[in-house]
C-alpha cells in the first residue's frame, strides 16, 4: 500500500507542528522517522492514523483520501502502536490482543473463537504466545510493547504505525522489538512507519529514513544516503563522528563528547 502525503500542515492551537510535509512511502518498506524531541514525529504518525486531523494538505493510502474511509474500514488497513499505554484494568493478554479484531466486529458482538485464534497467531508472530493467559498489568515494558504490536497485527493491517516502539526498553529489548517489526515487514509485505530516537537503530533496520526537524522533512532516503556528519549536525545541532563498519557494511554514529 502506497502512502502519499502532500503539503501536510498541522497546528496545535496556533503553534505549527508540521509544515508542508510531503512524502511518498512505498508498500513493504520500513521507514523510520528520525528527529529531536518536538520535531513533529508523533504528530506526523497521529495524522497518518487519523488521530489528528490536519489543517491543510492531504494523506492518501493507495490514492484514496484517508478521511473519506469509514472508521472500521480504516482500522482494518492501519494498525497503530502508541508510545505510552497506561493499563487500566488487569485484562488477560489474549483479550487485549483480541481487541485488534474490533474493526471486524459489528457494534453488538464480541470476538468469536476464530477471532481469538487470529489473536493467538498474532501473539505467536511476535514470539509471545506464552504470555496469553497472563494479566497484562504484570508485564515488563518489553513484553507490553510486544503485546501491543500483536494487537496491531491482529488488525491484519497493510500499514503499521509505531510511535517510538523502542522507548524505555533495555539494550536487548530495543533490538528484539525492531527485529520483530522488520521481520513482519519482510514476511507480510506490510509498510511500517516508525519514529525513533537512536540513529544507529534507524540505520540498522530501516529501508528508508525520514529526517524531521521543526515540523519539516529535511531529508528522505536510504540510510547511507541521508545519515552523515552534516545531516546529523543539522538535525541534532551537535557534532558526531561517523564510524564505518565493515561486517556487514554499515556505519555507526558516535556523538563527540
Amino acid at each position: 500500500m502506497i502512502i502519499t502525503v502532500e503539503n501536510l500542515t498541522f497546528c496545535y492551537d496556533s503553534i505549527p507542528a508540521l509544515r508542508n510535509v510531503s512524502v511518498e512511502i512505498l508498500g513493504g518498506e520500513l521507514v523510520t522517522i528520525l528527529g529531536p524531541n518536538g520535531s513533529g514525529k508523533t504528530t506526523f504518525l497521529k495524522c497518518l492514523c487519523r488521530l489528528l486531523k490536519p489543517k491543510a494538505g492531504y494523506i492518501h493510502f493507495d490514492r484514496r483520501p484517508i478521511w473519506k474511509m469509514k472508521p472500521n474500514r480504516f482500522a482494518q488497513q492501519v494498525g497503530y502502536v502508541p508510545q505510552v499505554h497506561s493499563p487500566s484494568f488487569p485484562y488477560r493478554v489474549i483479550d487485549v490482543v483480541a481487541g485488534g479484531r474490533t474493526p471486524y466486529l459489528s457494534v453488538l458482538t464480541a470476538p468469536s473463537e476464530k477471532d481469538y485464534e487470529l489473536a493467538y497467531q498474532a501473539l505467536e508472530a511476535v514470539g509471545c504466545r506464552e504470555l496469553a493467559e497472563r494479566s497484562y498489568t504484570q508485564l515488563s515494558g518489553g513484553e507490553l510493547r510486544m503485546v501491543l504490536i500483536a494487537r496491531a497485527l491482529a488488525q491484519q493491517p497493510k500499514i503499521l504505525l509505531l510511535d517510538e516502539p523502542t522507548s524505555h526498553l533495555d539494550f536487548k529489548n530495543k533490538i528484539m522489538v525492531m527485529r520483530t517489526i522488520k521481520n513482519l515487514v519482510e514476511k507480510r509485505q506490510v509498510s511500517a512507519v516508525v519514529s525513533e530516537h537512536d540513529p544507529n537503530i534507524a540505520i540498522a533496520f530501516s529501508d528508508k529514513i525520514i529526517l524531521m526537524k521543526e515540523g519539516s522533512i529535511i531529508a528522505y532516503g536510504k540510510p547511507d544516503e541521508v545519515v552523515n556528519e552534516e545531516t546529523m549536525k543539522i538535525l541534532y545541532e551537535m557534532d558526531v563522528e561517523v564510524i564505518p563498519l565493515t561486517n556487514p557494511p554499515s556505519k555507526f554514529i558516535m556523538p563527540k563528547y
Binding site: N72, Q76, G99
Partner: peptide
Amino acid sequence: WRIFVLSMGDEEAKALG
C-alpha cells in the same frame, strides 16, 4: 466489547475503529 475497547483509552479505541 466496545466498553472493553473504550477502557484502552480514547486514542487506542479510535485507532481500533
